[in-house]
């Protein structure tokens, strides 16, 4: 069996000394035209998704990133043999080649921005210095509605529906607020990146979850911008990690 770590561009430089996953052999390059697959021979069809293995896979990718362009392959991809591997490279060659060209010299950065989650109100300071009182960003999926039973015996169906309406208004208001705030943060960062992807309120506490494809030369400027934003928005928590292999920017 063949465990697949990454697709890379062709490089005359031999692979660095890498350690394979679990009992797999040392990772090696399997060339095809002007690209290559980085593989290990293994006896297992289902590598265990434990933390050490996940980091091992990631470690191979990060070592490869130091001297070549790579497309990270999802953890756990095992192929039967080299015939299948060659077929994969042949079938997906156009996509791989295009993606390699697109991500060449670029890395991925991750950003998560968390809402303040304590206190009944929180003050969010805008980039322009404005200060506004915001209600506690309670989970927008969880409408603060009471069940009919909780409202007491005197509550009518009308009361119940009015409470639902009010809850929906609050939810819409919170969503608008979140989208505006997320855009204020995302826009300057997107302008420092080649491509980006983002989600607002992916989970209730996660105001913004984003990935940016950034030129290596722009890494410092990008991090400085994140630092500046975290100062401008002291009520939010900014978590920036990377550089990562371009997991979010492969199309194959």
């Amino acid at each position: 069996m063949i465990y697949l770590y990454a697709i890379t561009d062709w490089s005359a430089t031999p692979l660095p000394a890498l350690t394979g996953l679990e009992e797999a052999t040392r990772p090696e390059s399997y060339p095809y035209r002007d690209i290559a697959a980085v593989i290990s021979h293994t006896t297992t069809t289902t590598p265990s998704p434990v933390e050490t293995n996940l980091w091992q896979h990631e470690g191979v990718l990060e070592a490869l990133m130091t001297d070549r362009t790579i497309l990270p392959v999802r953890f756990g991809t095992v192929l039967t043999d080299e015939v299948v591997l060659k077929d994969v490279l042949e079938t997906h060659y156009a996509d791989f080649a295009a993606d390699l060209k697109r991500v060449c010299g670029r890395v991925e950065l991750s950003l998560r921005v968390l809402w303040e989650d304590e206190g009944s109100t929180t003050t969010l300071t805008g980039a322009g210095g404005r200060c506004e009182e915001h209600p506690r960003p309670s989970p927008p999926y969880l409408l603060p509605t009471q069940s009919w039973r909780e409202m007491g015996a005197e509550a009518s169906g009308r009361d119940y529906l009015l409470s639902r309406l009010e809850a929906e208004r609050q939810r819409q208001s919170l969503l608008r607020e979140a989208k505006t705030l997320a855009a204020e943060i995302h826009t300057p960062l997107a302008s420092l990146s080649i491509e980006s992807t983002y989600q607002v309120l992916h989970t209730p506490c996660l105001l913004l979850k984003a990935a940016y494809l950034v030129e290596r030369e722009q890494l410092k400027a990008f991090r400085q911008e994140v630092g500046g934003l975290s100062v401008a928005y002291p009520a939010l928590r900014f978590l920036c990690t990377g550089p990562w292999p371009p997991y979010n920017f492969v199309t194959a």
Partner: peptide, 22 residues
């Protein structure tokens, strides 16, 4: 922990996918 979450989010959910049945 944060880095691990970012890793999980990528290594299990993103990246090149070769087989429809994966």
């Amino acid at each position: 922990e944060i880095v691990l979450v970012d890793l999980l989010d990528r290594i299990l959910y993103k990246g090149v996918i070769l087989w429809g049945d994966i």
